[in-house]
Simulated assay, not measured.
Amino acid sequence: MAVAGNSYVIRLTDAHLGWGTYRHTTTRNRRPGEGYIPIPISVSRNLDILNSNQQNISNIYTCRSVDGFFNDVELKASGNIEAGSPYAKQFQGNGNLLLIGDWYAHVGATVGDSVQVTWLSSHHIEIELI
């Protein structure tokens, strides 16, 4: 389980910044403005960041951003790299897929920029564009 002080850094790609439109699937309509923060599988496994495939756990994290744009918003650890895996592959807005995209727009994130995710406690994280 993640504890205060754990962190990781991820470099952003087109898919992270434009999740709603930069996609190779037709499972749902394109929607500009969506974004997500990827979680490398090694981080997900090491810190037990689980998705909803795992029963009796919370995959909801309280998040703030260093720049002050977010203050205690809810992010969901979701997705997986293979069907049925309990390990999450991304953080997304809980019930709002535009949430991370709004933050990316606010901080002026572009392809090649990096985001640092730092745990303040087991289910409270802080994000920063670095």
Rank of each mutant, 00 (worst) to 15 (best):
M1V: 15
A2G: 06
V3H: 08
A4Y: 05
A4P: 08
N6S: 14
S7R: 07
Y8S: 11
V9D: 09
I10F: 14
I10N: 07
D14I: 09
A15K: 11
A15G: 09
G20N: 08
T21W: 07
Y22P: 03
H24R: 11
H24T: 14
R30T: 14
R31E: 13
R31T: 10
R31W: 06
R31D: 07
P32G: 03
P32S: 06
G33H: 01
E34H: 04
E34D: 08
E34L: 02
G35L: 06
G35A: 10
I37M: 08
P38F: 00
P38Y: 01
I41C: 10
S44D: 11
N46V: 14
L47C: 10
L47Y: 08
L47Q: 04
D48S: 15
I49S: 03
I49W: 01
I49R: 00
L50F: 12
N51V: 15
S52F: 11
N53E: 15
Q54G: 07
Q54M: 14
S58Y: 08
S58H: 09
Y61S: 05
C63P: 04
R64E: 12
S65Q: 10
V66T: 08
V66H: 01
D67N: 14
G68E: 13
G68W: 10
F70E: 03
N71E: 09
D72S: 06
D72H: 01
E74G: 03
A77V: 07
A77P: 00
S78H: 01
G79L: 06
G79P: 02
N80E: 15
G84Q: 12
S85V: 08
Y87K: 06
Y87T: 07
A88I: 05
K89V: 02
Q90Y: 01
F91Y: 08
Q92S: 11
Q92K: 07
G95V: 01
L97N: 04
L99W: 00
L99Q: 03
I100W: 01
I100M: 00
I100V: 15
D102A: 11
Y104E: 01
Y104C: 02
H106K: 14
H106N: 15
H106G: 07
H106D: 12
V107A: 02
G108C: 10
G108Q: 06
A109K: 04
T110P: 04
V111W: 02
G112Y: 06
G112V: 09
G112T: 08
D113I: 05
S114Q: 13
V115N: 03
Q116K: 07
V117Y: 03
V117T: 08
V117F: 03
V117P: 01
V117C: 04
W119E: 00
S121D: 02
S122M: 11
S122C: 12
S122A: 15
H123C: 06
H124L: 06
E126V: 08
E128W: 02
E128P: 05
L129W: 04
